[in-house]
């Protein structure tokens, strides 16, 4: 039986790129369904999504942020019995051909979570200073806490299997930033996480949630704190 797959795309003011992203996915991953979560965009994102045929979308009642939009998508996937969720960004950074590679790896290697990694092989991806600093900081934290090397813990391109879909949709404590802390949690709970080297495009338009100075610094402090707390939370139950 073929695995049922859904691509979950949270979108906030991505009118310029959303159509191309969806049509690329349709070309590359033909069997997958597409779900866009429109997080109260103030531009023409919704109109653009409506133009595309065969694409389901959810309009959030209020602005819930990236993480809760993703969780909405995951819950939808659980309700509708999907086997795999592909998590992608709407800004065109993630290529659907690379997402397909991650999905194939998940099926082939029977992994619970596949992370699309920019840094596993040198793909020529240049990221701003704070992002690089954050990446190496969280990489070493994960190595200390879980004895595993994850080269790109802040990636937004992920493939999740049924087990993880169920776990995330029931999790009351789904974090504000679903990256490093969540990876530590899943590693400590003995989920199988693998990384697949992927190419990514540089961001062309729109703003990232990690732009500026205060936002990334605040993010790093909060995320550092939550990594430590999550480690303390699960350390006693590691072998349950």
């Amino acid at each position: 039986m073929k695995a049922r797959t859904i691509v979950v795309i949270p979108a906030h003011n991505e009118a310029e790129t959303i159509e191309t992203v969806i049509s690329d996915i349709k070309k590359e991953i033909k069997t997958a369904d597409i779900l866009v979560i429109n997080d109260c965009s103030t531009d023409r994102t919704e109109a653009r999504i409506r133009c595309v045929k065969g694409c389901t979308y959810i309009n959030n009642v209020h602005n819930m942020g990236y993480a809760m939009s993703v969780q909405t998508g995951i819950k939808y996937a659980k309700e509708n019995n999907y086997d795999y969720v592909i998590q992608m960004d709407a800004d065109g950074q993630h290529l659907s051909s690379e997402a397909k590679k991650c999905l194939d790896a998940a099926i082939e290697k029977n992994a619970d979570i596949v992370l699309g990694s920019r840094f596993k092989k040198n793909t020529g991806y240049k990221s701003p200073f704070f992002r690089r600093a954050g990446t190496s900081l969280f990489e070493s934290l994960i190595r200390i806490f879980c004895h595993k090397t994850i080269k790109d813990p802040l990636t937004g391109l992920q493939v999740l299997n049924r087990r993880v879909i169920e776990y995330y949709s029931e999790s009351g404590a789904y974090p504000e930033y679903p990256d490093a802390g969540l990876i530590i949690e899943m590693l400590m709970k003995k989920y199988k996480i693998i990384e697949v080297p992927v190419k990514m495009k540089q961001r062309k338009n729109g703003t990232s949630m990690h732009d500026g100075f205060f936002s990334p610094v605040g993010y790093m402090i909060k995320q550092l704190y939550s990594c430590v707390i999550i480690f303390i939370k699960f350390v006693g139950r590691r072998y349950e």
Binding site: G172, A173, P175, G181, S226, I229, I232
Partner: peptide
């Protein structure tokens, strides 16, 4: 605070 987080009675961000 930490035991509340462990029992999932308090979220990590609120505890900060």
């Amino acid at each position: 605070i930490i035991s509340s987080i462990r029992r999932e009675k308090l979220s990590v961000s609120v505890s900060f």
